[in-house]
Amino acid sequence: MTEHKLTESAKTAIRKQMKGIVSYVPLAVLGVAVTGCVQVAAPDKPIVINLNIKIEQEVIYRIDGAVKDAIEENSDIFG
C-alpha cells in the first residue's frame, strides 16, 4: 500500500513536470513561426503592379471635365 502510494505520488510529480514542458511547446512553435515570417517578408525587388496605372488613367479621363470646371472657378490659384 505504501509502495503504491509512493508510485502514485511519483506519477503525479512526473505529470506536473510534463505539464510544465508542454506549456512551453506552443511558445517554441510561435518563436519559429515569427522567425519564418521575417525571413519570408523581405523581397529584393519592389513588386510593380501595372494595373494601377490603367485604373488611374480611366479615372483621369472621367474626371477631366469636372477638374477643368474647378480650375476655372478657382482661377486665382490656377493662374
Partner: peptide, 21 residues
C-alpha cells in the same frame, strides 16, 4: 472637394489638374 464629388482619391484630382495646368 473634387475627390468627394467624383468619388475618386484627392491625388487623382491633383494629377488631372496637373495634366491641365
Amino acid at each position: 472637394r473634387l475627390a468627394k464629388q467624383q468619388g475618386v482619391r484627392p491625388a487623382d484630382a491633383g494629377v488631372s489638374a496637373g495634366c491641365n495646368q
